[in-house]
Design a protein around this nucleic acid. Structure first.
Length: 325
DNA sequence: GCCCGTCAAGGAGTA
DNA sequence: TACTCCTTGACGGGC
């Protein structure tokens, strides 16, 4: 018996409250290549990267002020970092001090940070070039974490990959290709069930086999399952976190509407969320819930206001609570 | 200062 | 086989 579960809320990458604090300003390769002076263009990329990281520090200060203890960093901190035409660019050299500052602030204030690279990381790709590009993207994330002074363990979540007309074979290809992933990067990874191809059961199979923590996405599960009930698999999800230094993490969002079920709504439906909370209460010491809503931090604030109204919810601070049923 | 086309990526789905 | 769509935030030309 575990006792009470502490639930904590986090949000994704940017704030709708802070002005001019984008962590993902960018320059496309097309624009970059139109600038004749390559040196000048590269310095511009570096200025953008520094600004993005400094904006992350502003975001963390905002989080601290609202007792928000975990946060997903944008994967677009350094524009074109993994672009093949910028091979050899020492982007780390240009942002090292800022990364250290970001990491220090997070550590001092005990803010959990992680990444979610977009769906172009495809470990099970049959095409070796796509696999290589995926490794490059993961190495970029690894370097950012390393220079923030953070242990990269379980800080990067993504999906199992494509189906390629044969889901079983493609699932096995993930396991084969996993052996080609450097061990430092393996340790960084968490796997999430997706909304089109790989269900909770598929992910559990792989996570148990390869000892990878599973990030359960309830919304994806509702959009994509083959009859399995998440409640029946929950204990297995919890077990995939047994060896992690970090608490279990999951993703929470609500469908935009019936027609666009897979799209994220502006806010999170509190009833759906509390239904989940009730079911997992007591199963594990802590659950970190990443709010994936269009209204970002505002969705978190709104959810907290609604939680405060509920008789069974006991707030611990402005973003964490216990369920007393 | 707002609108809208453009940019980037890999896979799924359709013709 | 070839295309369009999906997703996301940001850029930047045009008015």
């Amino acid at each position: 018996m575990v006792g009470m579960t502490l639930f904590r809320l986090g949000y994704v990458a940017m704030s709708v409250h802070l002005q001019n604090a984008s962590p993902s300003q960018t320059m496309t390769y097309k624009r970059f290549s139109q600038i004749r002076d390559v040196e000048a263009a590269t310095r511009k990329l570096e200025r953008i990267a520094v600004s993005n990281i400094q904006n992350c520090i502003r975001l963390l200060k905002h989080n601290k002020a609202h007792d928000i203890h975990f946060f997903r960093l944008s994967s677009r901190l350094v524009p074109l970092a993994t672009h093949e035409e910028l091979e050899g660019w020492d982007y780390i050299g240009a942002i090292k001090d800022d990364l250290t500052e970001l990491g220090e602030f997070a550590k001092e204030n005990k803010i959990r940070m992680d990444f979610h690279p977009d769906h172009f990381v495809v470990i099970n790709a049959p095409d070796k070039e796509i696999f290589k590009t995926s490794m490059k993207v993961l190495k970029y994330h690894y370097l950012l974490l390393h220079h923030m002074g953070l242990d990269p363990m379980h800080r990067c979540v993504f999906h199992l990959g494509g189906r390629y007309q044969n889901k079983e074979k493609s699932l096995e290809r993930f396991i084969e290709n996993w052996a080609l992933v450097p061990s430092g990067i393996q340790k960084m990874v968490m796997i999430e069930n997706d909304d089109t191809s790989y269900t909770l059961s598929d992910c559990l199979y792989v996570c148990e086999k390869l000892n990878i923590p599973l990030v359960f996405d309830l919304h994806h599960h509702l959009a994509n399952q083959e009859g399995e009930k998440w409640e029946e698999e929950w204990e297995r999800v919890v077990k995939t976190w047994a060896h992690s230094p970090l608490p279990l993490k999951m993703h929470i969002s609500s469908p935009k509407n019936e027609q666009e079920f897979k799209s994220h709504a502006d806010f999170v439906n509190v009833d759906m969320f509390l239904d989940f909370v009730k079911k997992v209460e007591g199963s594990v010491e802590q659950v970190d819930c990443m709010i994936e809503a269009k209204q970002k931090d505002e969705a978190l604030f709104k959810l907290v206001e609604e939680l405060k109204e509920h008789p069974h919810v006991e707030m611990q601070d402005e973003s964490s609570f216990l369920w007393k049923g």
